[in-house]
Design a protein around this nucleic acid. Sequence first.
DNA 1: GTCTATAGGAGGATAGAC
DNA 2: GTCTATCCTCCTATAGAC
Lengths: 221, 221
Amino acid sequence: MARIHNDETGTREQILSCAARLFRTEGYAAVTLRGIAKAIGMTTGSLYYHFSSKEDIVREILDQGHKRVFSEVRGAIEALGENAPCEAILKAGIQKHIECLLGEDSFPSANTRIFAHVPVEVRAPTLGERHKYELYWTDILKSCQKRGAIHPDINPHTLSLLLFGAMNWTLEWYKPGRHGIESIADNLVLLVLRGPKVGARQDGERTPSKVRSVRSVAAKA
Amino acid sequence: MARIHNDETGTREQILSCAARLFRTEGYAAVTLRGIAKAIGMTTGSLYYHFSSKEDIVREILDQGHKRVFSEVRGAIEALGENAPCEAILKAGIQKHIECLLGEDSFPSANTRIFAHVPVEVRAPTLGERHKYELYWTDILKSCQKRGAIHPDINPHTLSLLLFGAMNWTLEWYKPGRHGIESIADNLVLLVLRGPKVGARQDGERTPSKVRSVRSVAAKA
DNA sequence: GTCTATAGGAGGATAGAC
DNA sequence: GTCTATCCTCCTATAGAC
């Protein structure tokens, strides 16, 4: 019953995840079909039974890498319910995004690391989906700003881009033993959140004490 | 009198800046010696009179790219004098760092974009200098935190890494017409700075009104 | 579905003429 | 200081046997 009738034999998936792992660590141009084939005990000829070209492989990795991050992040945020406090929303989204990038699944990190170095023909068709993710975050940030949790003078769209930078760049410095993902996320949430407010409070936000739950992360990160 | 007696003829510099421009836009592996040579009307054989290998070229670009950012940023900050307010220091440093990356000089951006994709033998010797820059920023952030301008629960070292991410990632999305460098910097300063404080003020910091000067950037960025 | 063999091209690097 | 010519390696992709 659980048999799969389409192309998704184990081999195809194996090629993709192995390629993603190599792209993640070595970059786009440095990865060769020979390298992929060798890493899974195959020859390059066999790869062409499953994919028509190197670009065909990378296209699918970019696609899946992006989809996985988006759906994981959205899932984590929606699980909080409609009226979750801004801090919880930001914490969940930021932490999940970083977890995706730094986790064992190499698709998200491969996507982030090689995107800029991939041929335009591969990159162009993915721009629409990437834009949706950008808008998703911008809307969240706008809403948090409206609720008073983010400094009113910050541009939400620019903030989303700066936030992506802070999150995606963890790929360049994160070392599993030395850093904790959650404390990285906590530090980043503290940045995005407006500090304890002095001015008049806006709509539904609660008191500044809600910031407490991500306190005392300074010593650990 | 102004004649130069070392290797620094115009040609050598021309090769380097042309290579940097290509590395910046195409990535490390995608740039070929033939491409560099062709772009300046030379042949690959001639390149080897000036450099002994591709790695030799990239080594110098990484080196210079890093040095230029560091000295520009340090210069901008030191020009403010010893007792400059934290906001001014952060604004100057952040803006200068971003200006270096997005400016006409391709060495800083090439350095940032290809670093992770360069052979280890080239990367390893540069780690020491890069670490110094990291420490330089961490010290600045620590000092700002001590003066109360940065949230006390944030880890300054983690903050420096997140800040580098936000700044360096501008390379991936900045478009000259659509964004203003200064407003990007203003937005980022607002993030790093603690919002208007409610608790007891610490040492030398002045009133929250100093935040005003980077206000109203939301509409522009 | 995987293999071997190989075509066809591009890469870094060198030798030696000018 | 720059050129041409070339070596050798490695790449993507294909053809056809098993």
